[in-house]
Amino acid sequence: MASIRANCRKIMCIGRNYAYVGLFHFPPPKFATAGWLDDHITELNNTTPKQPFFFLKPASSILLPGAGPVLRPKGVSLHYEVELGLVIGKTLRDLDPQDHKGALDAIHSYILAIDMTARNVQDEAKKKGLPWSIAKGFDTFLPISREIAKSRIPDPHEAFLRLRVGQAERQADSTSLMLYRIPQQLAQISRVMTLEQGDIVLTGTPKGVGEVKAGDVMKASIEVGGKEIEEGRIEVEVKDREGRYEFKET
């Protein structure tokens, strides 16, 4: 497992990428489009992107299984976002968005991940037009599962993600609700910057994002065909972080 962190040069995160499935949209379509509403977009008062939107997290934010708690910095409103992660297996540059085989062939394996966000830090930065890398980049802000072999997830668009805080289920949705499928995500990223072996791509989070505090325990899981993938489990506690950082207005 340590090799995942050691081999990762960058973590690309797709934002605002899960469709809303309402009363008149069931069952969910095989290929959702950007015309759909996004529950996670709605709950954060954002707008639906016209193309895949991505940002970076540092590899130093990765928290390996059993490596300790997620640490909440002083003054931070800490939010969870469960996501399916792709571990890239080969160099990918300027991928054709219609090349589904090329996209899936470039994936070495999968992980489950919890993208942690310092939400008040992010909100202040957005309001003032400032970069918000800090909000995503603290140490321990990316708990991940053990590595999941590709054979365990035959179709990454047909998996089910769950996240619980304590005994309360907070997120539970299918990856079939992605607005932009994985080939489109990898095409958009790779036309801007080369994806390299060991890089991680986080594919977006469904609705239900919320706050956690010290003492909370997060449990995340992934299912395929109604069966949980054992190596895809995450269980991690939240604790307060000691140190010099404390959130203050910029």
Rank of each mutant, 00 (worst) to 15 (best):
I4T: 15
R5L: 10
C8S: 13
R9A: 13
I11Y: 01
M12G: 04
C13I: 12
R16I: 11
R16W: 10
R16C: 09
Y18T: 05
Y18N: 06
A19Q: 09
A19G: 07
A19H: 04
F24M: 11
H25S: 15
F26V: 09
P27D: 10
P27I: 04
K30S: 13
T33S: 15
D39S: 11
T42N: 13
N46W: 04
N46L: 14
T48Q: 12
P49T: 08
K50Y: 07
F54K: 00
L56E: 09
L56M: 14
K57M: 12
A59K: 11
A59V: 01
L64Y: 08
L64A: 12
G68D: 07
V76I: 15
V76Q: 01
L78H: 03
H79T: 06
H79I: 07
G85Q: 03
G89Q: 09
G89W: 09
T91I: 07
D94S: 13
L95R: 02
D96P: 02
P97I: 06
Q98I: 00
H100L: 01
K101N: 09
D105A: 13
I107W: 04
H108M: 08
S109A: 15
S109W: 03
I111L: 14
L112P: 01
L112V: 15
I114W: 02
M116C: 12
M116E: 06
T117F: 06
N120K: 06
K126D: 07
K127H: 12
K128L: 15
K128N: 15
K128D: 14
W132K: 05
S133T: 11
A135C: 09
K136I: 07
D139G: 02
D139T: 10
D139A: 13
D139F: 00
L142Y: 00
I144L: 03
I144H: 02
R146H: 15
R146G: 14
I148N: 06
A149N: 11
K150W: 05
S151V: 12
I153P: 07
P154D: 13
D155I: 12
P156V: 08
H157Q: 15
L161Q: 09
R162Y: 10
R164G: 01
R164E: 11
V165N: 08
G166I: 02
A168L: 11
R170N: 04
Q171I: 02
A172Q: 04
S176M: 08
M178I: 10
M178W: 02
R181D: 14
I182K: 00
P183C: 06
P183F: 05
Q184P: 00
Q185M: 15
V192C: 10
V192F: 11
M193C: 12
T194M: 08
Q197R: 12
I200V: 15
I200W: 01
G204P: 06
P206M: 08
K207H: 13
K207C: 08
V209M: 13
V212Q: 01
K213T: 14
V217M: 09
M218R: 05
A220D: 08
E223C: 10
G225A: 11
I229W: 01
E235C: 10
V236S: 03
D240F: 04
R244P: 05
R244Q: 09
E249P: 07
T250R: 11
